[in-house]
Amino acid sequence: MGSVICGSGNVAPAKISYRQVGEGPDVILIHGLAANCAFWQMDLLLPLSAKHRVTVYDLRGHGYSGMTESGYRPSDMADDLLSLMDQLGIGKATIVGHSFGGAVALRFIEKYPARVENLVLADTRVHAIQPTNYARDWPNAAEALPRLHALGLDIPDDERDSGIWLLEQLAKPEWRSERHKLKGSPLYMPFAPFGGGTRSANKWLKLLKTTKARQEISFIDGPTADQISQISQPVMVYYGSHSTLQDSFRGLQKLLPNCSAVIAPKAGHFFPLSQPLAFGTEVAAFLASTESAKSVIRIHSDAATTYGRVREAVAAESK
């Protein structure tokens, strides 16, 4: 993988590792917390890279990217993305973010709207809509919580971000074998489809333990609901049918009535990992629809221009 150095202002420089596949208009995929760019599996990338240049990268503190003491606010990571795009010569791209990667994408489109062609949010908790994610509020709490309890995982009542809490517990060595018991369930939280994910899990724990990431990832200073409603680019919101983030899914559709809303059937939060081909195909279809919509507009504007010329010609003749 290639790498560039990102970081500006008060944010320490960090190596950001990336990989590109395919040729065409740019698409950038942002993974979520505790993951890395391998989250986007090959059969997810294939349908996307058929007509696009796809860039995947490791967020700061993840995968092969550098770990700094701070620089983990969505806003900081949006700046890392801007720097990555600048250094790779990407002027404008479709930004696809899963989970926390979507929070980075939202912050990015708010800060740098001119750099975004389309936006895809996959199972992202939108803080302006859903500020907390208590386990008791999960739509599937009645089924899921007893299953977790049976494994010895009791999410504290006052835990505002149950997803991150679970992601931390399941990364610990004592839970490594247990988390595989959840395989096939919407609760499954893998660290890697290949191998046991031990080093990835350790890196995530190290990030939480030795840096300011724990506080900073929850530092949300935007966008507001009002700012989200003003997004003018085509947006796709793509959520798992069993996701605990249904409020965000519904809220986004209210704020963005023209968005393309898709549900991944029989899927939880990690559906891009469990249904990679479907994910890649759906996003590719969304991009094809936005491109054909643009060509319709272009045809209309060409027709208008032609019509204008005809009118001008008629006016000239009648003179």
Binding site: C37, A38, D58, F191, A192, P193, F194, G195, T198, S200
Partner: peptide, 8 residues
């Protein structure tokens, strides 16, 4: 002990 990211 390769993981997905190492394969990538």
């Amino acid at each position: 002990g390769f993981e997905s990211i190492d394969v990538v």
